[in-house]
């Protein structure tokens, strides 16, 4: 109890009095330290181990939930049917991997799934400059309260789950939803438009939901970047006769490019990882063909059809390709900018 108070006292004083007194406090006790050090020399190894033992429980957690599941990849080489344990399952070697490319029906499905994945990720990358423009445009507005308000309101959707996004979509766009009711009451349409239960423009709809959820949030980083730009750059541009638009093109955009580049590289390395939440909640019998991305497909095959081995084989390939992409992107970043992104 007593030592504790003393420790706090020393620290509090160090905080109050600033650096020089800290140095004094240290020099006062340096003799003490030397004494302790020599005494500890022999026990320093055991001290090191003791420190390690303190983090051991967390290391075990990481092993259990990050490393151990990797051994689950062996299921990709067996014909695993859930109630039967792995030890009694048949070893099938690369059968599941061969099946992906040899079975025409399977090949066609996987082709469609890959196309969906590429389309969604590709559209996301193509629109990745939206937050940048959003931030620049918002920054052009003078009223500070307006900027803050817009920022608060537009980042809100980022903090709700995809299930809630779907609940919102259902309330707004289902056949009894707000938009259909409104259009019908105004006699614009006689039959409700099937926004959700159809396969028209599925990719675009998914992109738009993604933008609705993420645009405001994505712009925050750039807004901070803009406020960090040296004002002298703008003053110099003004002296050179640049108007507002030219200042944006020649000062703001180049200053934000490094940030944009890093985010772009990260999204390239996540090309295969669309996540499944969004597509899972929006999927139905109608839009199945165009909404099934890799992550969702793995779920549907594994948990829906109970083909755990095939699903493991697919997700194993996906993981390997993803890590490969990350390595390549990181290498490219090092080459071009001399900086790694991870």
């Amino acid at each position: 109890m007593h030592t504790r108070r003393k420790v706090v006292g020393v620290v509090a004083q160090a905080l109050e009095d600033g650096g020089s007194d800290v140095a004094l406090a240290i020099s006062e006790t340096s003799r003490q330290r030397r004494r302790r050090k020599s005494g500890r020399q022999a026990g320093s190894k055991s001290h090191a181990i003791r420190l390690w033992l303190l983090i051991l429980p967390f290391v075990i957690l990481a092993v259990l939930f990050c490393y151990l599941p990797l051994f689950g990849w062996v299921y990709a080489f067996f014909d695993y049917q859930p109630p039967i344990p792995l030890s009694e399952s048949e070893f099938v070697g690369l059968q599941w991997f061969k099946m992906m490319v040899q079975n025409p029906a399977q090949l066609q499905t996987i082709g469609q799934v890959l196309m969906n994945t590429f389309a969604m990720s590709g559209l996301n990358i193509l629109t990745s400059f939206f937050p940048l423009i959003f931030a620049i445009a918002l920054n052009e507005i003078r009223a500070k309260w307006f900027k803050n308000l817009v920022q608060t309101l537009t980042t809100l959707p980022n903090f709700i789950s995809w299930v809630l996004v779907y609940a919102v979509a259902f309330a707004m766009f289902s056949s009894t939803g707000m938009v259909n009711e409104l259009l019908q009451n105004m006699n614009v349409i006689s039959e409700p438009i099937k926004f959700l239960d159809s396969d028209s423009l599925t990719w675009l709809k998914m992109l738009l939901w993604g933008i609705w959820k993420g645009l405001g949030w994505g712009s925050i980083l750039y807004l901070a970047g803009i406020s960090g730009i040296d004002q002298e750059l703008y003053e110099a541009a003004q002296v050179d006769g640049a108007n507002r638009f030219q200042q944006i093109i020649h000062v703001t955009v180049p200053q934000l490019m490094p940030t944009y580049f890093v985010l772009l590289m990260l999204s390239v390395s996540n090309f295969l990882n669309n996540g499944m939440d969004q597509y899972f909640v929006f999927q139905n019998a109608f839009n199945m063909q165009h909404i099934q991305v890799l992550d969702l497909y793995v779920y549907n095959v594994g948990m829906g059809n109970n083909s755990l081995s095939l699903a493991t084989a697919i997700s194993m390939l996906k993981s390997l390709v993803s890590v490969g992409l990350l390595v390549v992107v990181n290498w490219m970043s090092k080459r071009t900018r001399g900086e790694s992104i991870v």
Partner: peptide, 9 residues
């Protein structure tokens, strides 16, 4: 590791 190996673990 992926969804299914995680589930099995």
């Amino acid at each position: 590791a992926g969804l299914i190996p995680m589930f099995i673990t």
